[in-house]
Design a protein around this nucleic acid. Sequence first.
RNA 1: GCCGAAGUGGCGGAACAGGCAGACGCGCACGACUCAAAAUCGUGUUCCGUGAGGAGUGAGGGUUCGAUUCCCUCCUUCGGCACCA
Length: 842
Amino acid sequence: MSKAYNHKEIEAKWQQKWEADGLYHANIDPSKPKYYALTMLPYPSGDLHIGHWYAMTPSDARARYMRMKGYNVLFPMGFDAFGLPAENAAIKSGIHPMIRTRDNVVRMRQQLRSMGAMFDWRREAVSSEPEYYRWTEWFFIQLYKNGLAYRKKSPVDFCPHCNTTLAREQVWGDDRHCERCSTPVIKKDLEQWFFRTTSYADDLLSYEGMDWPERVRVLQTNWIGKSEGAEVYFEIAPDSINDTSKAGASNNEYRMTIFTTRPDTLWGATFMVISPEHPLVDVLTTPENKAAIHAYKLAAARQSDIEREAVDKEKTGVFTGGYAINPVNGAKIPVWVADYVLMSYGTGAIMAVPAHDERDFAFARKFNLPIIPVIQPEGEPDLDGATMTEAYTGGGVMVNSARFSGTQVNDKKGKENPGILAVAGWLEEKGIGKLAVTYKLRDWLISRQRYWGSPIPMIHCQTCGWNPVPEEQLPITLPEDVEWKPTGESPLKLHPTWKNTACPVCGGAAERETDTMDTFMCSSWYHLRYLSPTYDKGPFDPQEYDYWMPVDTYTGGIEHANMHLMYTRFFHKAMRDAGITKGREPMVQLRNQGMVLGEDGDKMSKSKGNVIAPDDLVSVYGADTVRAYLMFFARWDMGAPWDSKGIEGTVRWVRRVWTLMTEVAGDLSEGRVGAGTEAGSRELRRKVHQALKRISRDYQEFEFNTIVSGLMTLLNEMYKAREAANADAAAWREALEVYLLMMAPVTPHIAEELWTEALGKPYSIHAQPWREVDEAAAKDDEITIPVQVNGKLRDRLTVPAEASEAEIEALALASEAVKRHLEGKTPKKVIVAQKRLINIVV
RNA sequence: GCCGAAGUGGCGGAACAGGCAGACGCGCACGACUCAAAAUCGUGUUCCGUGAGGAGUGAGGGUUCGAUUCCCUCCUUCGGCACCA
């Protein structure tokens, strides 16, 4: 075998053979430890991106390594196929999303096959096919039955001209106008479906037993945003109730609950602020303030969340004319409406303590509201509300706080703070408040006013209300005969008959929910559908589940830290509590890859013209070279700009491997390799086993760039050994075999070709066990020890590996170079750092 | 503003026990082969210095016999959150 390397020929040949033989089929095998390696599935845009290659081929290499290590490895692939792009394309071009999606899946499957990855295609799942979304619907019903799905009014962007809701990306410009008619968009409350993610907030905060990057854990922790404090109940002053419809109602009906992290500052509350959307705004507003409040509410509704939440924005607000009673001291304090208080966090109402909160301070100064200090920093002049220039937010001693004056306050939160603990206990005793916890995490809004998604399997009846579709009627399929009008309304709503159905409870006329589910719902359980994609008695075959779950390694982009990964964790826990899944977490280990940027260092985009197409690279260089280069050219977790010149180094390496392997294999089979010398053979074996040791560790640790550089280094050594011609045939055979085994996960085709054709070994290299490191062979005979004088390198000693530290020290002191730098002085100290370095201090 | 990550040659990066800084590769230079070029092979390539030597891992300080690695302060870049009560 001395033909030239032809990547097209060997890649086509082996991909076909592997497929025909089912080489990568993963079946339940209780005799082997299982390993579920999962990489995030793509959206079928119709074109595989270099980013997909960058994410998937190292994941594949590691899955292959684990397989060689003796694990029964499952490495599946599929498509997250519902979503907006297909629907937008349908509105523009009239091509049905189903047709477009199926075409794209066919095309992308081919592109994915060109990677030569070990995907078990029998387990492919496509989320937009009825056999899949039947179970997405089924899961919705399980969540509903377990009280985790509910309906609530929620604000959405709405175009009053088109009379429709808009997705966030359909709202354009700083003035927030409709993409189609340029009418300014308003917020509108719509009834929508939510999942109770918040009821799992504390469970989601625990990462026990999970090998996830610190970065992702921090991101999720911040996103959940647990905050400890207290809630306190403020009543509206009796003369401030402007609700004629409920004359004579008791005060308690209008109790306002506030959340605060600083109940210790309650005596310093000089006013209250409620959100413009707060239900009690109208009750509190006096007739003379009505017009101003109304205008303010309208303005707030027009603003985007981003505008409204901008930190540097000047505080705005309007006085309602109404007052509340501070329950700790009976003080009557004014209630303002301001947009810096968000209805979506806490209770939408706060007590304002301007002396000890920056935002309240800014607000008080602007509107001339009183500032009363109630925490005095120790050893400092007394705070004075009239002259303070900023809020004091630190610890100290409580003052002006009735029975609590003199109590210590520190920087800790919740119960850890003696001031908070004391006040909260008293509040609870008096029935005016208690310790409380609030989260930033919101419930998951899953309704989308869209066609191309999984239908929400709910039916609304005028008499029986909302009820789930009976499970035996699933799936509720999407109608195909819909019209693509650019109305912005979901075609499901406009379809003449689809929504008409019978109530599952009373049998009377009823309507289906016409909203569809967020696609994150589909991707929250795809790892389960892979287990048994054709199973029809449930979402997955329990036998497959028991063997394969949980996912051992999950790989993908960090951009999914707060959305997909959080939803998947929630989904798993909710279904576990419903008795459907098992265990604390769905994914034990998580690793994130970085991003391949364009050659200009910018993010790749069609408009910038800096997109690198993997298909072109594969056709020029071959999949093996592209795989190897993607693993080599950057740290996997960091990513880097693409370098089209850099790939030449990998091209040369692959060619040099081919040349050396075919030539040396030829020499071996024709007896041209002599007995060599014992030292020469030992030297070659040492290099091989040292590389094996390093490379094994690098596969384990996801350090793909040093796997390839380690292979390159060893190849250079093998060329030198060949030049020296002093290694025997056995050492060479081992070197060639181990080399191919080590490169097989990176470059599966060329490794298979050389293994079977050049070395004549039995097919397939990918079913071979990983070789164990021969520690004795890897051991150095001689070691080089750097010798420093005062920390500066002055000489290097080469000594036998078994030399004693005393011998090494004596040799170091005898060194000419060392003596020169000692300048006749006597060393004060000689440090012998094991057998790694000597430092002589004078 | 808060949280997190990262700053090492012309470039991507390596150094995984606090112990030889710059592995491997790109690029570049020189040489061999060639009429020539490409390809290939070989040699060199952190900076300053002819040299001995000196400096050097974003900046400054500290701990240590010894710091890219540990600690403190600061700067820059990137990512996330952003009036969260």
